[in-house]
Design a protein around this nucleic acid. Structure first.
Lengths: 291, 291
DNA sequence: CGATTTCTCTGACTTCGGTCAGCTGATCCG
DNA sequence: CGGATCAGCTGACCGAAGTCAGAGAAATCG
């Protein structure tokens, strides 16, 4: 790891923390403590107390107290949960909604005040660069790990993958095609972002020296980050460690992004090696075995 | 202002605040309160209490208490200021230096842990994009305002400008050339970043319909942000408001960045109009008068 | 059905960050 | 020299944030 890079990231973080005090106070400016303001803001979309506690990471006693404070100010009502008599639900009153809108507005104005120090072109550059940072940080925090093939999160990903194929293939998709022949699975990878499944992929042992990559999928919320490429590389290196210098995969003509990815990643088309009806196109790549 | 842009900046800020909790805590992880950790960190470079108070924005009583806490832990000593018997100076002990180095290290490791989720290419992209964001945010927070020609901050900028020219011109620079003929000054602009002077520039009335731009200068700490261009544009529009459709300026062959800026900004070389020995090159630009 | 778990609320308590007023010396200004 | 000012220290005080240990009501499990 390059120490200069670390230093630059740290410097950016420092600068940004300092600015954020000016930028995300949202919160501040209103003479309302931060905790209350955050809560007011979050109640806006979804008032289940359990959920709020999880989202904001609050102690249940503390949350209770904050709610009562907001209640006393007439910004919030707390009602019993319709389905579960133990649980309760918070809801903004009209005054609460107005207050929240005002917070929102202040925040917007602060940002607007910042942006109009810039020319239109500079603004565009800023947005673009922030988008890049955002993308790369998300990518950096996503973990990719090998998991047992029957891990619940992996099953869930495959289920969603199958559901998506079902809508994208004109002929539909039969989820039975998911299960690989027993005993051939090399590695099932699972990508998670902050504990939430973000994608999957696996490779199997096709013939000696040859691996097949299957079910490479990225969850909609994690697309556009470059995660598919990373999963693909991890699958390749896993197969390489298993002594497989050739990797094959098949895909469907409807999956244009996937095809682009494979081509860009060094795969070239080969005659069909698979009898799956969904593998309308088949690709192969030679990979270097680690010595 | 584009509402979508504001929303995107806000979203980035939100995301980044969330991450920063994980990134700049520095601080956290050590079982030391944030205030103490920040102080420990800042004492590292410069222990003058006055300065520390200003840098961290602390109340003098609070600072005193924090210092005593660190003192009790054997991390810091406080000695009288050599030059001023009222003031005092804080200094890290060996233990304090070790502690600070450890904070530093933890922070580095956190960043390293983040970065090694990325490929080398992605790391470079991240650094570049963060650099852009940093640059543009700094630029956005810099204010450019017209000030009286005798404003102390403007005088200070001109003094530093002259000092710099003195070192850059082989023949040196005579600061007497700074003062424009009385009564012709149109507008003196001063750029400030967080209240610190960051650059200056002014235009004068040369002949009817013609303005001259002089003393365009950006402080070293604010270079590379695009501030010179902004100052130049502001000067031009100020001259235009004064009914001057032609702007001239002269510069020295040693000032290559300035020459590049002028060429890029639409200035073309003209025969010398000025008898200043430092104006080895002279430029002109026609600007549109606001109706 | 009873025992256990789940969810919320309450009271007691702690720490941290921060402000304020007043004090002591040192220094500066006239 | 004497008064104003400046730097730092101290004690008193405050609210915000957060933790912890129950209590009580509802739901769930066996």
């Amino acid at each position: 790891m390059d120490a200069a890079q670390i230093a630059r990231v740290r410097e950016f973080n420092r600068y940004y923390t300092g600015r954020l005090g000016l930028l995300t106070d949202h919160y501040l400016g209103q003479d309302r403590p931060l905790g209350q303001a955050r809560l007011l803001y979050e109640i806006g979309h979804g008032g289940d107390l359990r959920e709020l506690r999880a989202r904001l990471g609050l102690d249940s006693g503390y949350l209770s107290r904050l709610l009562r404070a907001l209640q006393k100010q007439g910004l919030v009502t707390v009602e019993p949960h319709p389905g579960d008599g133990r649980a309760r639900v918070a809801r903004l009153t009209d005054a609460g909604r107005r207050e929240r809108a005002e917070l929102d507005d202040r925040s917007d104005q602060r940002i607007a005040g910042l942006l109009d120090g810039l020319s239109a072109g500079e603004r565009d550059q800023l947005i673009t660069a922030q988008g890049q940072v955002h993308r790369l940080l998300r990518l950096a925090t996503i973990t990719v790990d090998a998991v047992p093939a029957d891990a619940p999160a992996a099953r869930e990903c495959l289920r969603r993958y199958a559901a998506e194929l079902g809508t994208r293939f004109p002929e539909g998709y039969d989820a039975a095609a998911l299960t690989p022949p027993a005993g051939v699975t090399g590695e099932q990878l699972l990508a998670c972002e902050d504990g939430v499944p973000a994608g999957c992929g696996l490779w199997t042992r096709l013939t000696p020296g040859v691996a097949e990559i299957r079910h490479l999928w990225v969850a909609p919320h994690a697309r556009g980050l470059g995660l598919a490429r990373r999963l693909l590389q991890r699958l390749e290196s896993g197969a390489a460690r298993d002594g497989r210098a050739t990797v094959r995969l098949g895909t469907h003509t409807a999956l244009t992004e996937a095809i682009t990815l494979y081509r860009r990643s060094g795969y070239h088309e080969i005659p069909g090696y698979s009898d799956s009806p969904y593998n309308q196109l088949t690709f192969e790549k030679k990979i270097a075995l680690k010595q």
